[in-house]
Every structure is written in structure tokens, then in C-alpha cells.
Design a protein around this nucleic acid. Structure first.
Length: 513
RNA sequence: GAUCCCGUAGCUCAGUCGGUAGAGCACUUGACUUUUAAUCAAGGAGUCAUGGGUUCGAGUCCCAUCGGGAUCACCA
């Protein structure tokens, strides 16, 4: 234990010796929040020059003590609750209740109270000489003693931050500390929740049914990725953590629901970096009798609504890094081939494989011998086009080889009816007119099996029950998936996924008390 | 998985050419009846990530390991 921790434990014993319970059981009747008092306190100036305080004259507030400034027989604290901070003003005489021998002020508060302790106080709001709305404390109670020192972050009047708690490792491992001392972290997560609620409300209004589908799946389907594998003891069979829920949601469309959505965790056993966490949140929704054009309209409406909910001024334009991004539709719609033509001059439609390979070699795009034409196109797109798609852009009509669950294009042979949405140079959504032809779907699965046989660990497994479902008949359906974490990054201006997950995956901590 | 950078007090960081560990905040003791990065005086606090090596001597140089970050590969 460190010196400061030992001192705090000694203080805890001293409090108990004085008959003060540092961890009382009874509830504390909070009647106001710090930020509300600061924002709404009112007083009037009387003719004789004195002030008449108009509201918050009997408040009970609770929170952590985040700063203390002693001034002889008076003392100032900053109290932080869930809404923000407010200054407290304590006077020796009052805290001691007129009893000269009372230990309350000089011992209990000045010595035994630490920064970080939870306290509850009763008092009245007023404005100090320097103009700060504060609470004049009349009653003071310990609610929970803190045994470890918090990092002390200080801010001056101009908002300059001193000694910020910034080490990412410590911030992620001890998110509770991060949230306590870094208010902007709190704001990011509140925005995340607001984004999710806005999307839910929109989808509910559209009339979609929110559903839950299995996380433990006997066959991992619906995406190209490596799964986590587990084992069920009683059934004595392997189970996989889902990499996607697409095939289950489509079974529900087969079952007669017109529209379903699920927002939930997916799990992929792959590398981690600032845009990948082993578990992440996806939204998928599927709507019968629609196609991918309809989904583009819906996407525009949904994201505009999210932008308006999260932007400071209620507008559809969000500042992301150095870019002002306008989420009001309609968004640019560009075929993949046109996009590549615009940014490279290549005509990938007519080019053959060797021509594409030459282009990649000349432009420093890494390729290998196993890549077919579709894969080469994807590489060129990722290198040369994707980073330039700052304003929301629908990239439409992909080669069939890369999309085993997507309906073939109604007019263009070799392509599928698929789009991906790009914003700020990154993909945030992937959608298509769903393949509902069971015979075509079986062939696509068989193509995937051939890839798997060649060693592709991410090839999709054949799901016989899903094919059976399609054989019973699935109406024409449009479906889309959004990475909620990446959307959150976009709308909060964060550049790493760890900043939008409360508890990002970390390696085990080396033993330190 | 590969490469590079980082790890010193509770927090943020200095630490020169290899010569017995430093600052600010926090903490302790004291002063102060409206302070606000409060101020003033004094003091305590370190397995320099871990383990080896080189050296008379290592926070510093070398090797390995652990953890974090960045870039790349794979992916959403």
C-alpha cells in the first residue's frame, strides 16, 4: 500500500472511533443537482443594497469532494455530482453547531475528509463575493470514504487543464477513475446512448419489431470472419459466438414479420487496433418488400436524425476532425466502377486482371497471387477512393464474388444490388437487396465452401437450415448493417474505438495491488 | 502476427557524458473568516515495469519478458 492509502485507512478508523459511519446504509434524500443550481439560482437586489435569495434555499445534494480550499475558520469545497460541479461554503461555527469542543470542523472535515470522498450536504444556495453560485452548508454527512487518491486534474478560469489524467492504459483499465476526473469522457458515452436511443426510436416509428436472436450459434454465418469457439457441456457440441445475426433475422422475415431489427454485440476473433475490438455492437435491420434504393432513403433519414440529436445546434452538419459533414440527404450515389474511374482513371469494367495487377504494382498497392479480379478492385478502391469519401456517399453495385448473400443486380450482370455507406473516409454501413432465391443461395454457399477448402479461414459456412427457410419462401427483402461503435466514433469525433467502449478489451493487468 | 516509440512518487513530467533520485499538483504538520489552478511555511513519500548482462559503479548502455501506444497486415 502507498503512503496515501495507509493514511486514508487510518482516517477511516478515526472516523469510526468518533462514532461516524463512513459507509452509512440509509438513503440520502437528494433534492437538487449541482448543474441545475448553478444554472437556475436567482436573487434580487433590494433597495437597501442587500440581496434576497429566491430559490434553492433548502437543498440536499450529494457527490464527491473534488477540491478543498481552506481559509481559516471557513472552507470551500467543490462537490461533483452526476450533473457537474458546485462550490460548497462551510463555516466552522455553523458546522460545529456552536459547540466550541465539537470535532466536526477541525478534525472531521479538515483532517479526516479526503478528496474523492462521497458526502451529502444540506444547505442554501447563494452567490459569493466573487460571483460564484455556491451552497452554504448547514449539515454535512459522510456517504462513502475513498481509500485511494484520485488523479487531481485542475482547470483554470480559461479552461486550461493541468495534470490531466491521460495515460490510455490507466484510463481504460480504470474507466471509473477516467469518468470521475475527465468530464468529456462522460459526454462521449452520453452521446453514445443518445445515438442508440435515437436510432431505436426511428426504427420503432418505421414499424420494425425489435428482436433478439442467438448469440451462441452452432454454425457461424452471415459474415466473413473468424469466430470465437466455445463448447456446450450437456449437448457436448461446439457453439460459436455470433459473428453476425443476419441469417437469423432473415428467418424471421421468412416467418412473416415485415420488418425486424436487432442491436447487439457481435464477436470476431481477429486482430485489435483502434477500429477493432473483439466484441462490438452492430445494428441490423431487414424489411420485406423493399430494395436497396429504399434503404438509402431510410439511411439518410436515420443519420440526419442522429446528427440533429447530437449536434450542439440541432443542425444536420457535424464537425468531425477537420471536416464539416452534412448528414442531410440525399447523399451522393456512386457506383463502385464510377468511383474508381473518377479517382484513378481506370475502367475496371473493361480492364482484365493483368491490367489491374499492373496498376496495383505501379501504385504501391500490395497484392498477392490468389487475388481475383473482384479482390483487386476492392484493393484499388480501398487505397485510392475510400479515403476521399468525406461527405456521406453511397457506393453501389459490387462484384458478385464478394457478396454471397446478396441478390444479383436487376440489370447489370456480374454485379449485386449492394451499397456501402462511407463517411469521413470510412465505411459505416453495408446493405443489400437480400438474396431470396434458394437455389442461387445454395450455389453461393458452395462457392464459399470451395474457398474454405482452399484455406480461406473466413469463408462462410453452409447453413442448411437457412437454405430450408429460403426454400419455404422469403419475400423480397432489403437489409442493412451499421457498426454502432464506428457511428459513435464519427458522431463524437473520436479516432479510436476504445474511446467509445466503456471497457475495451485489454491484456490482463500485471499484479499491482 | 511484424516494425517503431513509451513505462521514474497517487497524477503530470524532468533526469545532461554512466557517478548515491528531482519538480508541480496531491499527501502530512502549522497559519489564514468569501476562496476558486487559493496562498504562505515546514516535512514525508520511489522495487526508476520485471529479470538478466556489461561496468569499480546502471533510471541512463545491451538482451529478454510483461504492459501500453502508433504504423502495417486482417477485418466492421
Amino acid at each position: 500500500m502507498t503512503e496515501q492509502e495507509i493514511i486514508r485507512r487510518d482516517k477511516l478508523k478515526e472516523l469510526q472511533a468518533l462514532g461516524i459511519d463512513p459507509y452509512p446504509a440509509e438513503m440520502f434524500p437528494v433534492s437538487a443537482f449541482a448543474a441545475d443550481i448553478v444554472a437556475n439560482y436567482q436573487e434580487e437586489l433590494l433597495d437597501d443594497g442587500t440581496k434576497n435569495r429566491l430559490n434553492y434555499q433548502d437543498v440536499a445534494i450529494a457527490g464527491r469532494v473534488m477540491a478543498m480550499r481552506e481559509a481559516g475558520k471557513a472552507l470551500f469545497m467543490n462537490l461533483q455530482d452526476s450533473s457537474g460541479r458546485i462550490q460548497l461554503y462551510l463555516r466552522r461555527e455553523e458546522i460545529n453547531g456552536g459547540d466550541e469542543n465539537s470535532p466536526m470542523f477541525d478534525t472531521v472535515i479538515k483532517k479526516l475528509l479526503d478528496l474523492g470522498d462521497y458526502v451529502g450536504i444540506r444547505g442554501f444556495a447563494f452567490r459569493t463575493k466573487t460571483g460564484e453560485v455556491s451552497v452554504h452548508v448547514q449539515e454535512f454527512r459522510f456517504l462513502s470514504k475513498s481509500l485511494r487518491p484520485l488523479p487531481i486534474v485542475k482547470r483554470d478560469a480559461e479552461g486550461h487543464v493541468f495534470d490531466a489524467f491521460t495515460d490510455p492504459e490507466q484510463r481504460y483499465r480504470m474507466r471509473y477513475v477516467d469518468l470521475t476526473v475527465n468530464p468529456e469522457v462522460r459526454e462521449t458515452f452520453i452521446k453514445r446512448t443518445k445515438l442508440i436511443k435515437t436510432i431505436r426510436a426511428y426504427l420503432d416509428e418505421l414499424g420494425l419489431l425489435e428482436v433478439e436472436t442467438p448469440i451462441l450459434q452452432p454454425i457461424h454465418g452471415g459474415a466473413s470472419a473468424r469466430p470465437f469457439k466455445s463448447h456446450h457441456n450437456t449437448l457436448d457440441m461446439p457453439l460459436y459466438m455470433r459473428i453476425a445475426n443476419e441469417l437469423y433475422l432473415k428467418r424471421l422475415i421468412v416467418g412473416g414479420f415485415d420488418g425486424v431489427y436487432e442491436m447487439g454485440k457481435m464477436f470476431r476473433n481477429e486482430g485489435m487496433d483502434r477500429t477493432h475490438n473483439p466484441e462490438f455492437t452492430m445494428l441490423e435491420f431487414y424489411v420485406a418488400y423493399k430494395d436497396y434504393f429504399w434503404l438509402m432513403d431510410v439511411t439518410e433519414q436515420m443519420l440526419e436524425r442522429v446528427a440533429r440529436a447530437l449536434s450542439p445546434d440541432g443542425g444536420a452538419v457535424m464537425r468531425v476532425g477537420e471536416n464539416d459533414i452534412n448528414f442531410a440527404g440525399p447523399y451522393t450515389r456512386l457506383t463502385m466502377f464510377d468511383a474508381i474511374r473518377q479517382h484513378t482513371g481506370l475502367n475496371v469494367e473493361t480492364a482484365d486482371e493483368s491490367e489491374l495487377r499492373n496498376y496495383c504494382r505501379q501504385n504501391g498497392i500490395e497484392i498477392d497471387a490468389t487475388m481475383g479480379k473482384a479482390k483487386l478492385i476492392d484493393e484499388i478502391f480501398g487505397e485510392k477512393v475510400e479515403p476521399h469519401l468525406i461527405q456521406p456517399t453511397f457506393l453501389i453495385d459490387y462484384p458478385v464474388e464478394m457478396s454471397p448473400l446478396t441478390k444479383k443486380h436487376r440489370a447489370k450482370p456480374g454485379l449485386v444490388e449492394r451499397f456501402e455507406l462511407f463517411v469521413n473516409g470510412k465505411e459505416v454501413g453495408n446493405a443489400y437487396s437480400e438474396l431470396n432465391d434458394p437455389i442461387d443461395q445454395r450455389e453461393r454457399f458452395e462457392d464459399q465452401l470451395r474457398l474454405a477448402a482452399r484455406g480461406d479461414e473466413e469463408a462462410m459456412a453452409l447453413d442448411d437450415d437457412f437454405l430450408r427457410a429460403l426454400e419455404y419462401g422469403m419475400p423480397p427483402t432489403a437489409g442493412i448493417g451499421f457498426g454502432i461503435d464506428r457511428l459513435t466514433m464519427l458522431f463524437t469525433g473520436q479516432t479510436s474505438i476504445q474511446e467509445v467502449l466503456f471497457f475495451p478489451q485489454m491484456r490482463p493487468e500485471v499484479d499491482k495491488g
